[in-house]
């Protein structure tokens, strides 16, 4: 993010939008998200936004069809979610205003599949042990 990159004031506008969404989350529990990729942000705007939001206590990286980075900003309930596509470029990037981003939680279908797989593994192990 070059410091010479021009500023359009977009970062300040986004911060106000995030503040309104965070207030709504606090009052009603309504979650929201802002798609950064669809906005005409300059490098300078993006750097300003990242600096203003800062980093909080939680950060996660994972590899699911490409690398992803998720971190909570210094404002509880405001998360920066970045998914990388091919060649390490940013494929999707959102600011999520939520207690926890959906992408971090295990999906019920995956949990069911894992439960069945673990049971099957244990059954196999038990059967092998019985043959010893």
């Amino acid at each position: 993010m070059s410091e010479e990159s021009p500023r359009t004031g977009m970062a300040q506008s986004l911060l106000r939008e995030i503040a309104r969404a965070l207030a709504a989350l606090a009052e009603t529990g309504a979650c929201d998200a802002i798609d950064l990729r669809s906005l005409p942000l300059t490098g300078g705007d993006r750097a300003d936004l990242e600096t203003a939001l800062g980093r909080g206590e939680v950060a996660a990286t994972f590899d699911a069809s490409g690398q992803s980075e998720v971190w909570e900003t210094r404002h509880a309930g405001v998360w920066w979610v970045r998914h990388l596509g091919g060649d390490g470029r940013v494929a999707a990037e959102t600011i999520e205003i939520t207690p926890i981003p959906d992408i971090l939680a295990a999906h019920p279908d995956d949990i069911r599949a894992s439960a069945a797989a673990l049971m099957a593994e244990l059954a196999e192990t038990t059967e092998e042990t019985a043959h010893v």
Binding site: I34, D35, G66, H83, I103
Partner: peptide, 21 residues
């Protein structure tokens, strides 16, 4: 995992100009 699918739909929502939610 469904996590991959959710990532993909996040990407789709962005390129299709749909609300990220």
């Amino acid at each position: 995992s469904r996590r991959s699918l959710l990532k993909y739909t996040g990407y789709l929502a962005s390129i299709l100009a749909l609300p990220p939610m």
